[in-house]
Amino acid sequence: MTQGSSPLASPQKLRNYPSYRGGEGMVAWAFHRISGIGVWAFIVLHVFDIWLIGANPALYDALGEFYSSAPGRVMETLLGAALFYHALNGMRIVVMDFWPALTIYHRGLWRAVWVTFFTFGLPGAYIILKPIWEMAA
């Protein structure tokens, strides 16, 4: 009948995910939450590794070697994707929360998020990953 939230099937309960029909707004919300948790987990690690620069520089450099290895670069690309999606969709949320009248454009804003994401994200991923095959050559 309607695309939208029913108070009986809140997406905030994990078991309601498969049957909840929220359209783009729901997918945007779910991606936002998943990417946010992922970036948070990395930041906990990242503040600790920056602390190592003073406390144990040798260990920091060992970790830095992993960051610049092939698996490290793949993970950084995923981290960048999560960060960039969360940043762009976050601005979509802020726009609609501060100017609720613009909520009627939520699908257009959602598409703009993805166009921006791939326009800047694909070249960015290429730059991060390029040393993998340059090292191999």
Partner: peptide
């Protein structure tokens, strides 16, 4: 993120 991945490669960023 741009600074640490696009301007400078992670490979040179030692302590």
């Amino acid at each position: 993120f741009s600074m640490t991945h696009f301007v400078f490669d992670p490979g040179i960023q030692s302590a």
